[in-house]
Amino acid sequence: MQDTVTAIINPADEKGNYVEGEALDKLKQYFQTGAVRVKAATQIGSSAANIVSDTVAKSLLYGDITLPGGNMYPTRRYAACLRDLTYFLRYATYAMLAADASILDERILSGLKDTYASLGVPIEPTIQALQAMKDVVTQRVGTEAGQEMDVYIDHIITGLG
């Protein structure tokens, strides 16, 4: 995976340069957001299960999907949905810390659409849940960190669409 710092160091090394000028400014900007990122990761990590429950309550729980014949029925499939939403939340948090989406492409999105298609997991409700997750996360971590998380949750949504 790549992160912002590595993504700045590697091209400098390719040219035998120090990290300076624009590249150093970019790094400074990232460093300035570091405290917000770490705080958000702490809050999200310590309440991940609640975030996922709230996300489901906000998006899927009261729909047909949890009824017999729906894709969150029976309990085994409900649990699988919780697990996947937890994955999405965890990887979006990693990407937010790194300020780099590449880990989402590598670890989440690569092959996901095919896997979901073969398992019969519907994309539309997944996206609905991810949209709800953005709101739930923002409520917990505040607007600034929430906007940053939105970038990476949106990246997953785009990748699924």
Partner: peptide
Amino acid sequence: IAKVIAQSDRADRFPGSAELTQLQDYFN
């Protein structure tokens, strides 16, 4: 940062509090 993410990912978990403190110190 990449190191903390990679070791969290290998263990299927969110970054732990010691790791987050380490990152906080790094940014500080």
